[in-house]
Protein backbone atom coordinates (compact mmCIF):
# COMPACT_ATOMS: atom_id res chain seq x y z
CA UNK A 1 0.00 0.00 0.00
CA UNK A 2 1.64 3.23 -1.10
CA UNK A 3 -0.76 5.45 0.80
CA UNK A 4 1.09 6.68 3.85
CA UNK A 5 0.21 5.10 7.20
CA UNK A 6 -3.01 6.75 8.36
CA UNK A 7 -1.92 6.51 11.95
CA UNK A 8 1.87 6.99 11.91
CA UNK A 9 3.37 5.71 15.13
CA UNK A 10 5.37 7.94 17.46
CA UNK A 11 8.60 6.20 16.55
CA UNK A 12 10.67 7.82 13.78
CA UNK A 13 13.98 6.09 13.34
CA UNK A 14 16.58 8.10 11.49
CA UNK A 15 20.05 9.54 11.35
CA UNK A 16 21.58 12.75 12.59
CA UNK A 17 24.63 13.75 10.57
CA UNK A 18 27.14 16.13 12.08
CA UNK A 19 28.67 18.25 9.31
CA UNK A 20 31.09 19.71 11.85
CA UNK A 21 32.87 16.46 12.57
CA UNK A 22 32.51 14.64 9.25
CA UNK A 23 35.94 14.42 7.65
CA UNK A 24 34.77 13.04 4.32
CA UNK A 25 36.59 9.72 4.63
CA UNK A 26 33.80 7.80 2.81
CA UNK A 27 33.95 5.00 5.41
CA UNK A 28 30.15 5.25 5.84
CA UNK A 29 29.59 4.93 2.08
CA UNK A 30 31.93 1.93 1.79
CA UNK A 31 30.56 0.24 4.87
CA UNK A 32 27.02 0.77 3.56
CA UNK A 33 27.97 -0.77 0.24
CA UNK A 34 29.64 -3.72 1.93
CA UNK A 35 26.74 -4.49 4.28
CA UNK A 36 24.02 -4.04 1.70
CA UNK A 37 25.83 -6.08 -0.94
CA UNK A 38 24.91 -9.00 1.31
CA UNK A 39 21.80 -7.66 3.07
CA UNK A 40 18.10 -7.48 2.20
CA UNK A 41 18.77 -5.39 -0.92
CA UNK A 42 21.46 -7.76 -2.17
CA UNK A 43 23.05 -7.98 -4.59
CA UNK A 44 23.96 -4.32 -4.83
CA UNK A 45 25.44 -4.41 -8.29
CA UNK A 46 28.50 -2.81 -9.79
CA UNK A 47 29.05 -2.55 -13.51
CA UNK A 48 32.51 -2.36 -15.08
CA UNK A 49 34.02 -2.05 -11.57
CA UNK A 50 37.65 -2.26 -12.71
CA UNK A 51 37.14 -0.66 -16.12
CA UNK A 52 37.28 2.88 -17.42
CA UNK A 53 33.75 3.80 -16.37
CA UNK A 54 32.86 2.05 -13.14
CA UNK A 55 29.22 2.35 -12.16
CA UNK A 56 27.10 0.91 -9.41
CA UNK A 57 24.26 1.26 -6.94
CA UNK A 58 25.15 3.07 -3.71
CA UNK A 59 22.79 4.09 -0.92
CA UNK A 60 25.10 6.61 0.66
CA UNK A 61 27.37 9.07 -1.13
CA UNK A 62 29.69 11.72 0.28
CA UNK A 63 29.86 15.12 -1.41
CA UNK A 64 32.17 18.00 -0.54
CA UNK A 65 30.88 21.55 -0.74
CA UNK A 66 32.43 24.93 -0.27
CA UNK A 67 30.34 27.54 1.48
CA UNK A 68 31.22 31.19 1.76
CA UNK A 69 34.32 32.97 0.53
CA UNK A 70 37.76 33.81 1.77
CA UNK A 71 38.55 33.50 5.45
CA UNK A 72 34.89 32.91 6.23
CA UNK A 73 34.64 30.10 3.71
CA UNK A 74 34.28 26.49 4.79
CA UNK A 75 34.81 23.17 3.14
CA UNK A 76 32.04 20.86 4.29
CA UNK A 77 31.94 17.11 3.76
CA UNK A 78 28.38 16.14 3.14
CA UNK A 79 27.13 12.54 3.30
CA UNK A 80 23.76 12.08 1.60
CA UNK A 81 21.40 9.12 1.87
CA UNK A 82 17.66 8.47 2.20
CA UNK A 83 16.14 10.85 4.77
CA UNK A 84 13.13 8.57 5.51
CA UNK A 85 10.78 11.54 5.07
CA UNK A 86 7.46 11.92 6.88
CA UNK A 87 5.87 12.98 3.56
CA UNK A 88 7.72 10.74 1.12
CA UNK A 89 6.30 11.42 -2.35
CA UNK A 90 8.50 8.55 -3.56
CA UNK A 91 6.04 6.28 -1.73
CA UNK A 92 2.76 7.87 -2.81
CA UNK A 93 3.69 7.98 -6.52
CA UNK A 94 4.44 4.24 -6.59
CA UNK A 95 1.81 2.50 -8.75
CA UNK A 96 2.42 -1.00 -7.40
CA UNK A 97 2.65 -0.77 -3.63
CA UNK A 98 6.33 -1.74 -3.74
CA UNK A 99 7.37 1.47 -1.98
CA UNK A 100 6.03 1.89 1.52
CA UNK A 101 6.58 3.70 4.78
CA UNK A 102 6.47 1.52 7.86
CA UNK A 103 3.89 2.47 10.43
CA UNK A 104 5.92 1.13 13.35
CA UNK A 105 9.17 3.05 12.86
CA UNK A 106 8.80 5.29 9.80
CA UNK A 107 11.41 3.52 7.70
CA UNK A 108 10.83 3.88 3.92
CA UNK A 109 11.42 0.62 2.07
CA UNK A 110 11.03 -0.98 -1.36
CA UNK A 111 9.56 -4.47 -1.71
CA UNK A 112 11.69 -5.69 -4.58
CA UNK A 113 9.24 -8.50 -5.38
CA UNK A 114 6.52 -5.97 -6.23
CA UNK A 115 8.59 -3.26 -7.98
CA UNK A 116 8.04 -2.96 -11.76
CA UNK A 117 11.02 -0.64 -12.26
CA UNK A 118 9.05 2.37 -13.55
CA UNK A 119 11.57 4.71 -11.84
CA UNK A 120 8.89 7.29 -10.98
CA UNK A 121 9.88 7.18 -7.28
CA UNK A 122 13.41 8.29 -8.18
CA UNK A 123 11.93 11.27 -10.05
CA UNK A 124 9.83 12.13 -7.01
CA UNK A 125 12.80 12.17 -4.60
CA UNK A 126 14.46 15.61 -4.33
CA UNK A 127 17.48 14.08 -2.60
CA UNK A 128 18.60 11.49 -5.15
CA UNK A 129 18.28 8.74 -2.56
CA UNK A 130 17.01 6.02 -4.88
CA UNK A 131 19.22 4.23 -7.37
CA UNK A 132 18.03 1.85 -10.04
CA UNK A 133 19.44 -1.67 -10.36
CA UNK A 134 19.17 -2.42 -14.07
CA UNK A 135 20.26 -6.03 -13.54
CA UNK A 136 17.28 -6.80 -11.31
CA UNK A 137 15.04 -4.21 -13.03
CA UNK A 138 13.97 -2.77 -9.68
CA UNK A 139 14.62 0.36 -7.61
CA UNK A 140 16.84 0.15 -4.55
CA UNK A 141 17.38 2.41 -1.59
CA UNK A 142 18.72 2.77 1.94
CA UNK A 143 16.90 0.45 4.36
CA UNK A 144 18.32 2.14 7.46
CA UNK A 145 19.97 -1.28 7.80
CA UNK A 146 16.71 -2.84 8.90
CA UNK A 147 18.56 -6.17 8.87
CA UNK A 148 21.04 -4.86 11.47
CA UNK A 149 19.01 -2.66 13.79
CA UNK A 150 16.53 -5.44 14.68
CA UNK A 151 18.99 -8.30 14.26
CA UNK A 152 19.11 -10.21 17.52
CA UNK A 153 21.99 -12.30 16.19
CA UNK A 154 24.21 -9.26 16.53
CA UNK A 155 25.53 -7.98 19.85
CA UNK A 156 23.29 -5.15 21.00
CA UNK A 157 25.98 -2.51 20.50
CA UNK A 158 26.18 -3.42 16.81
CA UNK A 159 22.46 -3.01 16.14
CA UNK A 160 22.94 0.31 14.37
CA UNK A 161 23.14 1.08 10.64
CA UNK A 162 26.46 0.07 9.06
CA UNK A 163 27.28 3.70 8.20
CA UNK A 164 26.91 4.71 11.87
CA UNK A 165 29.02 1.80 13.08
CA UNK A 166 31.77 2.67 10.58
CA UNK A 167 32.10 6.39 11.24
CA UNK A 168 35.52 7.03 12.83
CA UNK A 169 34.62 10.54 14.00
CA UNK A 170 31.14 9.75 15.38
CA UNK A 171 29.63 12.18 12.92
CA UNK A 172 26.64 9.87 12.41
CA UNK A 173 24.05 9.23 15.11
CA UNK A 174 21.16 6.80 14.96
CA UNK A 175 18.03 6.90 17.06
CA UNK A 176 14.35 7.72 17.48
CA UNK A 177 13.75 11.28 16.30
CA UNK A 178 10.07 10.99 17.20
CA UNK A 179 10.94 10.94 20.90
CA UNK A 180 11.93 14.46 22.02
CA UNK A 181 13.86 12.96 24.97
CA UNK A 182 16.02 10.64 22.86
CA UNK A 183 19.75 11.45 22.65
CA UNK A 184 19.47 12.16 18.90
CA UNK A 185 16.51 14.51 19.35
CA UNK A 186 18.32 16.35 22.14
CA UNK A 187 21.40 16.63 19.92
CA UNK A 188 19.27 18.16 17.17
CA UNK A 189 17.75 20.63 19.63
CA UNK A 190 21.14 21.62 21.12
CA UNK A 191 23.00 22.02 17.86
CA UNK A 192 20.28 23.53 15.68
CA UNK A 193 19.81 20.47 13.48
CA UNK A 194 17.92 21.19 10.26
CA UNK A 195 16.08 19.65 7.31
CA UNK A 196 17.48 19.56 3.78
CA UNK A 197 15.32 21.47 1.27
CA UNK A 198 12.56 22.27 3.78
CA UNK A 199 10.74 24.14 0.99
CA UNK A 200 9.97 20.80 -0.69
CA UNK A 201 7.83 19.97 2.33
CA UNK A 202 8.82 16.29 2.40
CA UNK A 203 9.56 16.67 6.14
CA UNK A 204 12.73 14.55 6.32
CA UNK A 205 13.29 12.57 9.52
CA UNK A 206 17.10 12.65 9.16
CA UNK A 207 18.62 15.88 10.38
CA UNK A 208 21.91 17.62 9.65
CA UNK A 209 23.93 19.47 12.28
CA UNK A 210 25.60 22.63 10.94
CA UNK A 211 29.35 23.20 11.17
CA UNK A 212 30.17 24.98 14.44
CA UNK A 213 31.25 28.63 14.08
CA UNK A 214 34.95 29.04 13.37
CA UNK A 215 37.40 30.08 16.05
CA UNK A 216 38.33 33.71 15.54
CA UNK A 217 41.86 33.60 14.22
CA UNK A 218 43.26 37.13 14.38
CA UNK A 219 45.66 36.54 11.53
CA UNK A 220 43.17 35.45 8.93
CA UNK A 221 44.51 36.73 5.65
CA UNK A 222 42.60 37.17 2.44
CA UNK A 223 41.92 33.55 1.61
CA UNK A 224 41.22 32.43 -1.88
CA UNK A 225 38.42 30.06 -2.61
CA UNK A 226 39.31 27.05 -4.64
CA UNK A 227 37.51 27.10 -7.93
CA UNK A 228 34.72 24.56 -7.98
CA UNK A 229 34.95 21.40 -9.93
CA UNK A 230 33.10 21.89 -13.15
CA UNK A 231 31.87 18.98 -15.10
CA UNK A 232 32.10 18.58 -18.83
CA UNK A 233 28.88 18.55 -20.77
CA UNK A 234 27.62 14.98 -20.94
CA UNK A 235 28.62 13.16 -24.08
CA UNK A 236 25.89 12.56 -26.63
CA UNK A 237 24.50 9.23 -25.55
CA UNK A 238 23.61 7.99 -28.98
CA UNK A 239 24.47 8.57 -32.58
CA UNK A 240 21.11 10.31 -33.00
CA UNK A 241 21.83 12.82 -30.23
CA UNK A 242 25.35 13.46 -31.54
CA UNK A 243 23.88 14.02 -34.97
CA UNK A 244 21.24 16.33 -33.47
CA UNK A 245 23.93 18.23 -31.59
CA UNK A 246 26.02 18.64 -34.73
CA UNK A 247 23.04 19.64 -36.87
CA UNK A 248 21.75 22.18 -34.41
CA UNK A 249 25.22 23.63 -33.86
CA UNK A 250 25.53 24.64 -37.50
Amino acid sequence: MTSLPRDPGPKKLGLVIDLDTCVGCHACALSCKEWNAGGVAAPLPDWDPYGAEPDGVWFNRVHAFEAGDGADGRTVHFPRSCLHCDEPACVTVCPTGASYKRQEDGIVLVDEDLCIGCKLCSWACPYGAREYDHDAGVMKKCTLCIDRIYNTNLPEAERVPACVAACPTSARHFGDLGDPESPVARLVAERGGYDLMPEMDYRPVNKYLPPRPKHDHAASGPGSAVSPVTEPEPEGESRFLRWLDATLSR
Binding site: F65, E66, G68, G73, V76, M197, P198, Y208, E231
Partner: peptide, 18 residues
Protein backbone atom coordinates in the same frame (compact mmCIF):
# COMPACT_ATOMS: atom_id res chain seq x y z
CA UNK B 1 18.72 25.14 0.79
CA UNK B 2 19.82 21.73 -0.51
CA UNK B 3 22.81 21.63 1.84
CA UNK B 4 21.51 23.95 4.55
CA UNK B 5 24.88 25.75 4.40
CA UNK B 6 23.37 29.04 3.20
CA UNK B 7 24.04 30.82 6.53
CA UNK B 8 27.79 30.41 5.87
CA UNK B 9 27.62 31.86 2.37
CA UNK B 10 27.30 30.93 -1.27
CA UNK B 11 27.49 27.15 -1.71
CA UNK B 12 29.30 25.37 -4.55
CA UNK B 13 30.25 21.78 -5.17
CA UNK B 14 33.91 21.03 -4.52
CA UNK B 15 33.96 17.29 -5.02
CA UNK B 16 31.18 15.13 -6.44
CA UNK B 17 30.44 11.83 -4.64
CA UNK B 18 31.41 9.74 -7.65
Amino acid sequence: TATGLGPIGKVRLLDPPR
